[in-house]
């Protein structure tokens, strides 16, 4: 290496990024309630405590329902919008697309507060359902951004060729369009799922009395006794993230290989 300074910089950067995450499993298996060195001994009791916790189980269930519903709804809406945006031109297209993408840059707390005001004004009860509404709102722009790429890189004459060979519009979509944009759809589902799963502000405002994973973790930080269990939970979440990312990357690469494209970018 010609520049040892740059090497050191890279090392420090990576350490800052990942060292805290490596501490999670260490303390998750540490037999002591105080998060500090030296370590006391090996235990799996925190995991046991985690699995025995009813409120946590409820929070996990809620978060799963919210994340899966939001991912499916946002991706479905994204498919419609991306297909329309990449195939047709209509008056006000730029403005409409801009408005749909706006939540990407809008401060989330503003979105959360205004949603709260509107939903309460409409007389709705805060629940898992209202959180889903909020999450669909913030996930849809990501879904559209991902799916837009998938749809606009699709050669239009592929669909025309299928119609030319006797297929209807719908069977063309099923046989040609859908398989070719499938990597984008899976990507969009996974990204939306991840965004929804760790979203805090909207869930905090719109969930009412229902706990979600992030709001539950936040509420437990006040109790030092609970912290090792949170570490165990964090360890599980990190593992889950790695698995999801691997799946997403697998599908992305397979999609590229199947359509014969060149690999540019991606996560890994």
């Amino acid at each position: 290496m010609k520049l040892p300074g740059l090497r050191l910089y890279a090392l420090v950067y990576l350490l800052f990024l990942y060292a805290p995450i490596f501490l999670l499993p260490i303390f998750a298996f540490n037999d002591g309630t105080i998060i500090a060195f030296p370590l006391k001994g090996f235990t799996t009791s925190w995991f046991g405590q985690m699995f025995g916790n009813d409120t946590l189980a409820r929070a996990v269930r809620n978060s799963m329902i919210i994340a899966v519903s939001s991912a499916v709804l946002a991706t479905t809406l994204g498919i419609f919008a991306a297909r329309a945006g990449s195939r047709f031109s209509f008056p006000g297209k730029g403005g409409i697309m801009g408005l749909i993408m706006l939540p990407l840059v809008l401060p989330e707390i503003i979105v959360a507060v205004s949603l709260l005001v509107v939903l309460l004004g409409m007389g709705m009860t805060l629940s898992v359902f209202t959180v889903i509404l909020g999450h669909v709102l913030i996930c849809t722009p990501y879904a559209i951004a991902i799916l837009n790429t998938a749809f606009s890189s699709l050669d239009r004459s592929l669909e025309e060729a299928a119609v030319d060979l006797g297929e209807t519009k719908w069977s063309t979509f099923r046989l040609i369009t859908l398989p070719l944009v499938m990597p984008g759809i899976i990507s969009s589902l996974l990204i939306s799922f991840t965004i929804s799963l760790d979203e805090f502000i909207i869930a905090f405002f719109l969930a009412g009395n229902e706990p979600t994973l992030p709001t539950y973790i936040f509420s437990q930080l006040r109790f030092p006794k609970q912290i090792p269990m949170i570490m165990a939970l964090g360890t599980c979440l990190v593992l889950l993230s790695i698995v999801l990312l691997t799946i997403a990357e697998y599908f992305r690469r397979r999609g590229i290989a199947r359509s014969g494209g060149k690999d540019t970018g991606g996560f890994l």
């Binding site: 050669d155 004459s157 592929l158 025309e160 060729a161 299928a162 119609v163 030319d164 060979l165 006797g166 297929e167 209807t168 040609i176 398989p179 070719l180 199947r258 359509s259 014969g260």
Partner: peptide, 19 residues
């Protein structure tokens, strides 16, 4: 409609289904 006409087309990009 196009899918019922007695014509078939060879496209400029060939439009070979890549999958």
């Amino acid at each position: 409609p196009a899918n019922q006409r007695p014509t078939n087309m060879v496209f400029q990009s060939y439009a070979i289904f890549p999958h």
